[in-house]
């Protein structure tokens, strides 16, 4: 209990210091761009607890998770197919690496032109950018499948489908989850950026719209919310991952001892 308290205090020290500095520097309240924290918190409460949640937060999160889900499904399926075939792997690897390096903003502009500013285009943008870490890590994980286990699968005459679902995929899961972690971060960024460029809802849209209307405390409240959402999404994914990979942590600990 004391350890938990000590740890929380350690983590909280820096943001509290920043907050204190912010409060101290803005105590006069004369700056248009840097309102005092109290003002931002008030707007935060008015906007996000929970008046504008259905209008802006939900669309953002729904689009992000839809895009992420799409990228994980496509990335894992394609990654298994490419990872299982040497030829397919050799033929696609350099092109995938090239595509992955395409900067997000270029993708956003292109997708806006192709699909417009609606939700479908945004979901596709998010999916396109975040599919690569999942895909490339799945390929690597599949190719690193334990050869002895593949021998086991062959000697017990498992079908190709069983080999994939029972041996290859579970074995690649730790590597896939590394990719998913990166994809989550990318999906979050693309979610915001896609809303900056077009549309009529979402936290990104709200923040940019507030900024261009000089509703500065609103803008700050949007930024604060995005930061908090980012942390929440990361924690959520980390917890889900730890649950799914409990065997991996256990096996690694056992191998070390």
């Amino acid at each position: 209990m004391t350890r938990l308290l000590a740890r929380t205090a350690t983590y909280a020290a820096l943001p509290l210091a920043v907050l204190a500095a912010w409060w101290y520097l803005t105590r006069g309240g004369e700056s248009l761009y840097f309102p005092p924290p109290g003002q931002v918190f008030t707007r935060f409460r008015e906007n996000w607890l929970f008046a504008l949640v259905p209008e802006h937060v939900m669309p953002s999160l729904v689009r992000m998770f839809s895009g992420l889900l799409l990228s994980v499904v496509v990335g894992v399926a394609l990654g298994v197919a490419l990872g299982m075939s040497d030829l397919a792997h050799r033929a696609t690897k350099p092109w995938l690496t090239l595509l992955r390096s395409t900067p997000g903003p270029v993708v956003v502009v292109t997708f806006l032109v192709l699909f417009g500013t609606g939700s479908v285009g945004k979901v596709l943008m998010i999916a396109f950018v975040s599919v690569f870490p999942v895909l490339l890590n799945t390929v690597d994980g599949v190719r690193a499948a334990e050869p002895v286990l593949l021998d086991v699968a062959a000697s017990y005459r498992l079908s190709r489908r069983e080999r994939v679902t029972r041996i290859v995929l579970p074995g690649a899961l730790p590597q896939i989850s590394v990719g998913v972690r990166t994809s989550v971060a990318l999906a979050f960024i693309v979610m915001i950026v896609s809303e900056y460029f077009g549309g009529s809802d979402g936290v990104g849209y709200f923040t940019r719209d507030s900024a261009s209307g000089f509703a500065i405390p609103d803008m700050w409240s949007g930024m604060l919310l995005l930061g908090l959402l980012g942390i929440a999404v990361n924690v959520l994914v980390a917890v889900a991952q730890r649950r799914a990979l409990r065997w991996y942590a256990g096996a690694r600990a056992a191998a070390k001892s």
């Binding site: 002895v148 286990l149 021998d151 086991v152 000697s155 074995g171 065997w247 991996y248």
Partner: peptide
């Protein structure tokens, strides 16, 4: 190819068992 009447016990048990199962 592997025969259905034959089963093989591998040398390296740490690798021949699935750690996730």
């Amino acid at each position: 190819s592997p025969h259905p009447d034959m089963a093989l016990v591998f040398q390296d048990y740490t690798r021949s068992l699935m750690p996730w199962a």
